[in-house]
Amino acid sequence: MKLPALKTAVKDLSEIDRREFFKAGGAVATVALSSGVTLMAFGGAASANADAGKRWGLLIDVNKCKSDCNACVTACSDENGWEDTGNPETDAQWIRKVDLTHKQTGREVSLPMMCQHCEQPPCVDVCPTGASFKRADGIVLVDKHACIGCRYCMMACPFKARSFVHEPVENQKSHAPRGNGTVESCTLCVHRVDKGGSPACVEACSETGHGAMMFGDLNDPASEISQALKQYSSIGLRDDLRLNPGVRYSNL
């Protein structure tokens, strides 16, 4: 959609400055503020947009994940502002810990479950309004501006990764809007990723010293995650469905 109003607005001096910086700078991310004030900050990646050349993913080493550790869940909850209200059946659960025992061998494992950011996401296919969508860089999100709360995506998700907001919400985090009557799930901390960061769960996991979670670009053969995937065998959950999840598990 073309907006003539925007064009005039863009002529603002600070915007021109900003563009010059952008042209010049490699590792400089800039943020334009509302009234001609421009802030610049140093960041890792220069890209401010979802980059179609990238595919963000996670690799979870199940052997390193500990059953008694809940750090990733707590970190996600703190980062994104969803919390335990004492109603486990209706509370949001962007990420959850699951403890498993192998039926034949009796091997016990623990792992975090969240949106698997599929390449062929069923939630995106079934969404009637297109609110459930996949970004160019592979992150699957809900555009809550278009979500009508029909919950069909929750019916379609093979991983039970999505939650429906059952109650009015207040005092949300400004980077993680969430509201009554819409569906939500793990965003892979898209607000951090867009600024060159990594998801809060991954950071928390590495702070505990377990280091069971790795984040990176699956399309970049030189990235740490691609190297690890090349070296060790891993699976995607429900690989039989051929959804090619962006979250992979090793030693499961």
Partner: peptide, 23 residues
């Protein structure tokens, strides 16, 4: 209009460098 334009920029395209954000 400005906010709607920029909200779609951020939500759909991941552009965090917008001029008119609600926050």
């Amino acid at each position: 209009k400005l906010m709607r334009h920029d909200r779609d920029e951020t939500t759909l395209l991941g552009n965090r460098d917008v001029k008119y954000s609600l926050k």
